[in-house]
Design a protein around this nucleic acid. Structure first.
Lengths: 339, 339
DNA sequence: TTGAAAGCGCTAACAT
DNA sequence: ATGTTAGCGCTTTCAA
């Protein structure tokens, strides 16, 4: 492997000149730059990442902690991951993937100076990783919003708003007998940030609209979806609308509703909270509050890069993407509102 | 951040002693080792990854190229990824994630000495990355089997065997009117390794058993599954069994068969080629040839580590995991064989 | 506009 | 069993 010295020799310049041509951190005359670039190409030179990291304390790598916990939809995770990796590459960074949510992993990559920053997924209300993240010298950005961010930067869809908006949309259509089919019990049990926030917003809206709250957690299997849907029909025989906040349950919920003789949206409206492509790949195009997972992942990287670039002590930001309802074919006013 | 010098000073030894305590590459007296370890803990010392890489030409990072191409099931990808990351951690390595399948990414991490080795997923029959992989000084392992590995190591399920076994299992039950619902057209079009091999095996078995080959590619959507299933029923009105090599299509295939009035397995047997958990999470537990994605990912890492550890020129290995049918509730002999 | 050289924090060969 | 020290390949300050 050629080194920077080789390049310098071939180009007939000093190593520092080569370095500056590469970094652009000081002006280089056009002819010199040309000679250097030619030498680089000729030799197939690539700077050694380790040497660079050692000399500059910059690795151009960010860590992405994407724990694969039970109950979280893999599709959605991958959309976040894709967003992060893609945007990171655009910013000349690579991504080190951590799939365990252990504090040990954070410490290893952080104090070992393996990465310049961390992006953390699957955040809980009271996340055990927060103290560790605060102690690192590298910046961290959470995808999610814990109860007390304590100065960490966060990005996410505004899930409280999602809960409110989901119910409000249905009540405005005239629905009163609405149920929420939610995330799996495991997700609820560990107080995953998005789940708790969504429920909070949903409850608030229910209070405002004076409609009862009927919530059914739901395992992410066909059987789980069937059970939850049947439970809901049982608890609310006059059900006219259902909010589903569980990607993997959607096919099963739809199938079970139909099996029970309820047409969508004629008898029951279905409003999904999920990525747009999931809403579109069901047997009926679902009205949904889209989770822009990829964009949120990209936004997380943007925040990382800001922190890396400039104001080291830029005050921590919390970016909450505003939810919107995209009307498709699965919602309508309840039957009694129609001729 | 404390450095190795700090540790040496606090422990009252030389830096090399600290280094050797850490690496275990030479004997250290018990008392000395103790003092050093205490100093390490006391200071919270972590070796600087870049410095280490520079001095030792070892990064303890492997690259995982997991392109998210259209048509491949995310669930399956994630199982491979999980297998790779988990086993890599067990071997004291971290994983750098590349999601584009560009040759540029390989060159960057390889000649930049960012990683010790590469694991490559989503391999095609005639994979464009092979020349680049051969040119690297780091070892590479493919998950998949190209037409000409040219000396690269490969691990995968024996998909030719899968194709044979799938059909053989059904014909042995007495089925003659069998259809194969396959991967999406895009996967076929780019000659993804596993798809081509499975088809090859299937054709061979069909010739051996003298049954016609009815193959229907299938988009990974509910609609796609419906279309493919209806097409199959159309082409083969007396259909008694179907092989499904398309995870995302499974729910739709099952639903469509039922909608057409065919009970499973009474009227139609369904044999799936998919990870075990996918087979188990359908509305009926499917007989399947399981794809042990996680184990294959782990095996890929094992092969990497062997190469890294010892015989640099260990001859390249090709490990093909033997497929097995796991009988569950979706297959039975055809009706005419039963009372 | 360019060059010389002092590190960055380790590993491992060479000494003792 | 332990210590000394020469790099590893780069960045960046200081000089010119």
């Amino acid at each position: 492997m050629p080194t920077i010295d080789d390049v310098a020799r071939v180009a007939g310049v000093s190593v520092s000149t080569v370095s500056y041509v590469l970094s652009g951190k000081r002006p280089i005359s056009e002819p010199t730059r040309e000679r250097v670039k030619r030498a680089i190409v000729e030799l197939g030179y690539r700077p050694h990442a380790g040497a660079r990291a050692l000399a500059s304390s910059r690795t151009n790598v960010i860590a992405l902690m994407a724990p694969l916990r039970t109950g979280v939809d893999v599709n959605v995770i991958m959309q976040f991951v894709t967003g992060v990796v893609t945007r990171a590459r655009e910013a000349e960074h690579d991504v080190l993937l951590l799939t365990q949510d252990d504090v040990g992993g954070i410490e290893r990559v952080s104090s070992g100076s393996m990465v310049d920053a961390l992006v953390v997924m699957d955040v809980e209300e009271d996340d055990a990783r927060i103290p560790t993240l605060l102690a690192m010298r590298q910046p961290a950005v959470l995808i999610g919003l814990p109860a007390e961010p304590q100065g960490l930067s966060c990005v996410d869809l505004d899930f409280e708003g999602v809960g409110q908006l989901a119910l409000a949309h249905l009540t405005q259509l005239g629905h009163r007998d609405v149920a929420l089919i939610g995330p799996p019990p495991s997700v609820l049990a560990r107080h995953t940030s998005y789940a708790d926030r969504m429920l909070r917003g949903y409850h608030r809206q229910a209070a405002a609209d004076a409609v009862p709250v009927v919530v059914e957690p739901c395992e992410s299997t066909t059987a789980g979806a069937r059970n939850a849907t049947e439970a809901v029909l049982d608890r609310l025989p006059d059900l006219t609308a259902v909010v589903v906040h569980n990607e993997s349950a959607l096919p099963g919920v739809i199938a079970t509703l139909r099996a029970a003789g309820r047409r969508i949206p004629d008898d029951v409206s279905v409003l999904a909270v999920c990525p747009a492509d999931v809403a579109l790949s069901q047997s009926i195009a679902l009205t949904s509050i889209d989770i822009p997972a990829q964009e949120i992942g990209a936004a997380a990287v943007d925040m990382v890069m800001e922190r890396l670039a400039g104001a080291v002590d830029a005050e921590p930001a919390t970016v909450l993407v505003r939810p919107r309802v995209t009307e498709r074919d699965s919602t309508a006013p309840p039957a009694r509102f129609r001729p």
